[in-house]
Amino acid sequence: MDEVLFVVEGPVRRAEVPALCDRLAAVVRARGARVVTVDATAMGGPGADALQALARLRLTARRLGVELRFVGLDRGLVGLLGWLGLGQVVGEAEEGEEPGGVEEGVDARDPPV
């Protein structure tokens, strides 16, 4: 299976983050996933525990070579990530950059750099 849904039960506490990452790794390995959609609806609002969980899940996915997508994230948490310059953790574009997977268009009439 190429894509799986990974539901985060929450709210997540710091002590639970390693087990959460282990569960993600087990799901990816068992199902052969290449893309994991994380349902973070119950993860919780902006705070250190949720930030750590998101960052560690992203790191775990990167180590496993899978793409991670998030749905259901608290708006305050997404805003906090952007404010901290960590919006790319959840796929938000940084200021002046295109969102992930979007290439800037090139106009053939533009002079070369």
Rank of each mutant, 00 (worst) to 15 (best):
M1N: 02
D2Y: 05
E3Y: 04
E3R: 15
V4M: 14
V4P: 00
L5N: 03
V7A: 14
V7Y: 07
V8T: 00
V8Q: 00
E9P: 01
E9A: 15
G10R: 06
G10K: 05
P11T: 04
R13Y: 06
R13T: 01
R14T: 04
A15E: 14
A15H: 09
E16P: 03
P18E: 12
A19H: 07
L20G: 00
L20K: 05
C21K: 08
C21I: 01
C21S: 09
C21R: 08
D22R: 10
D22W: 04
A25T: 00
V27E: 15
V27I: 08
V28C: 04
V28E: 02
R29I: 01
R29D: 09
A30C: 07
R31I: 03
R31H: 13
R31S: 11
A33Y: 02
A33P: 07
A33C: 08
R34N: 10
V35S: 11
V36R: 04
V36K: 09
T37M: 01
V38M: 10
D39L: 03
T41D: 02
A42W: 00
A42G: 04
M43Q: 04
G44E: 06
P46Q: 13
P46V: 09
G47C: 14
A48C: 00
D49F: 03
A50F: 00
L51N: 06
Q52C: 14
Q52R: 08
Q52G: 09
A53P: 00
L54A: 05
L54K: 02
A55L: 15
A55H: 06
R56K: 13
L57D: 08
R58V: 05
R58A: 12
L59W: 02
T60I: 02
A61V: 14
A61T: 04
A61C: 08
A61K: 04
R62P: 00
R62S: 14
R63K: 14
V66K: 10
E67H: 13
R69M: 04
F70Q: 09
F70S: 06
G72W: 12
L73S: 10
L73W: 07
L73F: 09
R75D: 15
G76H: 11
V78A: 15
V78G: 05
G79A: 13
G79M: 06
G79I: 05
L80E: 12
L80N: 01
W83F: 14
W83I: 12
G85Y: 05
L86H: 07
L86C: 07
L86R: 09
G87M: 11
G87Y: 08
Q88G: 05
V90T: 14
G91K: 06
G91E: 00
E92F: 12
E92A: 14
E92W: 03
A93H: 12
E94C: 11
G96M: 09
E98L: 10
E98F: 10
P99M: 06
G100C: 01
G100Y: 11
G101L: 12
V102Q: 10
E103A: 15
E103L: 15
E103I: 10
E104P: 07
E104W: 03
E104H: 08
E104G: 10
E104D: 02
V106P: 03
D107P: 01
A108D: 13
D110E: 15
D110Q: 11
P111S: 01
P111G: 11
P112H: 05
P112Q: 10
P112K: 11
